[in-house]
């Protein structure tokens, strides 16, 4: 007796197979692009040291394999990557994998929380604004959304810092935890949470307006559709209409946006991470560019492309779950 393969699994497998060439292309492309940029790790290192003799530089180049032609370097890098070996970071003197893993947690925590808050609050406010379209409530919500959308993230972050840390002294200025605190257990969790409040708030306030505006227009659009009228004619009340008929259908485009934004989860917080000195991937990427840390940079890009592929897959699954008209095949 042969076990039937569940359709979801075949679908997942097919998506996995499709993802491989995508990721290989991204990696080859970025590798070549980075090689086109002037300067390499050795230049950056030597610059940090304040100069060195030509022989030493030559030796470093040979040691790092930078004397080889580009395509040989590419081949070496790609074949190592195929075994999930990201190489060695010459700046941090650690394997790239270790450096990445150290930073991944912070970024994921920051981005996942801010996006989830932005999504939930944005959808709720958007729905409320649409139900009371053109009223005072709607105007207040829409205007506030626009203000936050228009505010640059660095400005918003600095103003929050000024208010909550400098003037009121309620929240820590930056970092992920109190450095000399050595907290453990729940104290540690509480400490990290306190440190994350402002960066999360700054990020979610900016993202929020996207969801708010999209949800508002989507709800307004769906509320005019025939099946909502049908439900009214069945005697359904406003709450029931809103939850079962309007929101259910209005959410679809918003979910698409959520998927798109989540794909940028690793790269999207460079500014906020830098301002709040959070040791995350955004900050790491920025420093790696400055220091020409090829391996680390490539590692981050690899991680990002994996996340994009995974999130796209999850969005499609979610979409198929939410929209009965779409079938995975």
């Amino acid at each position: 007796m042969s076990l039937p393969i569940p359709p979801l699994l075949t679908y997942a497998l097919r998506r996995l197979v499709q993802a491989v060439p995508v990721i290989v292309l991204i990696m080859v492309g970025t590798f070549l692009l980075l090689k086109l940029a002037p300067g390499d790790t050795v230049d950056a290192l030597v610059g940090d040291m304040g100069g060195a003799d030509a022989q030493f530089i030559e030796r470093l180049r040979i040691e790092y394999g930078l004397d080889q032609p580009v395509w040989v370097q590419l081949w070496r890098y790609m074949s190592k990557l195929a075994t999930f070996d990201f190489g060695w970071s010459f700046v941090y003197e650690q394997p790239v994998a270790t450096v990445l893993m150290d930073r991944l947690g912070t970024t994921l925590l920051l981005m996942a929380t801010s996006l989830s808050i932005a999504f939930t609050v944005g959808v709720a406010l958007g729905a409320i604004a649409a139900r009371r379209a053109y009223s005072l409530t709607d105007n207040v919500i829409s205007t506030l959304g626009l203000v936050f959308y228009a505010t640059p993230s660095f400005f918003l972050s600095l103003m929050m810092m000024l208010l909550f840390s400098v003037k009121l002294g309620w929240l820590p200025v930056g970092g992920i935890k109190t450095i000399a605190g050595f907290y453990t257990g729940w104290d540690h969790v509480w400490d990290v949470a306190l440190h994350l409040i402002m960066p999360t708030a700054a990020l979610s306030l900016i993202y929020l307006s996207f969801y708010l505006r999209l949800m508002r227009s989507s709800v307004l659009q769906v509320a005019d559709l025939d099946f909502v009228r049908t439900a009214r004619a069945k005697g359904a009340g406003e709450t029931r209409l809103m939850f079962h008929h309007i929101m259910r259908n209005a959410l679809l485009p918003v979910v698409t946006l959520f998927g798109l934004q989540f794909s940028t989860v690793l790269g999207g917080s460079v500014v906020v991470e830098t301002i709040f000195t959070l040791p995350g991937l955004g900050q790491l990427a920025y420093q790696s560019v400055i220091q020409r840390d090829m391996n680390t940079l490539m590692g981050i890009i690899f991680l990002c492309s994996i996340i994009v592929v995974v999130v796209n897959f999850l969005t499609d699954l979610l979409y198929a779950r939410l929209d009965s008209r779409i079938e995975l095949s």
Partner: peptide, 26 residues
């Protein structure tokens, strides 16, 4: 009171059977 009457004692059929049913519900 109208909600109690609609769908119960007075019901309605619409023109477009395509759009008059919620696409997301069975």
């Amino acid at each position: 009171e109208m909600r109690g009457i609609r769908g119960n004692r007075i019901s309605m059929i619409f023109q477009e059977p395509m759009t008059a049913l919620n696409p997301q519900k069975t």
